[in-house]
Amino acid sequence: MVVRDISQRKRFLNSGNVYLPHIAVIEKIIEETPTIRTFHFNIKDDKVREQFTFESGQFAEYSVFGVGEAPFCISSSPTRKDHLEVAFQKVGRVTNAMNRLAVGDEIGFRGPYGNTFPMDYLKGKNLVFVAGGIGMAPLRSLIWNVIDNRAKYEKVTIIYGARSPDLLCFKYDLTDWQKDSSLNTVVTVDRGTPDWKGNVGFVPAVLEKTAPSANNTVAVVCGPPIMIRFTFPVLDKLGFKPEQMITTLEKRMKCGIGKCGRCNIGDVFVCRDGPVFSYAEIKGLASSEY
């Protein structure tokens, strides 16, 4: 999944200057949790909007003008072209400023950057999606992509958890997926509340209990580092090989195009060569700083 030769990538550049963002307009804001929001937005320029393409797994740099720029994945699916979506958690300077924006406000958008989920490799396989908290954002792009091309894939299992019921993101998606008989959707929380009727337990434990077969299966994992660290051993126990485990990594990515230096793990730049890696690739990196 590491594609070193980025000239092979689908690139969408602004007339020469790669650092110049497109102006995009927020069309809808969804409060996912008390600290996480989703923006539905569109690029303002008609021509640019019509030409824009991306793949599941790619990210972009989003600006609040005058405050700064930060990287987030595109959380909508390329199969749904009405608008783009981004989910973010209010934690730093840029996300706090994003949190203050309203429908109709303009943001800066440049991308898409990075590699993509390996769609050809996933074709004809059983898929297991394992996500925690806001880690569902990149997986959600892929899950909708899979649903919209359902015939191309075998069994699909979705395991999603959050610390508590009010911290589950994309509840509207979860409802849809739970109704869809072609998917096995398991939702869990670390700690329940009196009115919570679903599963209680950590994501890795629920994954172990669900026990999807590793045969002809690929697991795609995304969530907080602690969840990922405990999920890989469970997958290993279930018989998954490192090549069958895929995740997306996060780093402080300032430029998004492998120039500014900080997001390297050894000789790999997460923004340029990632952010999607298999566990086999991660284990083969020159540095363990992932």
């Binding site: 650092y19 600006s63 405050v67």
Partner: peptide
């Protein structure tokens, strides 16, 4: 060559800068 990208604003003026990091 590593760099950082930052926005600055004051009194209705704003600009994006690149700095050595």
């Amino acid at each position: 060559y590593c760099f950082d990208i930052n926005d600055e604003q004051s009194k209705g003026e704003a600009a994006r800068f690149r700095n050595w990091d």
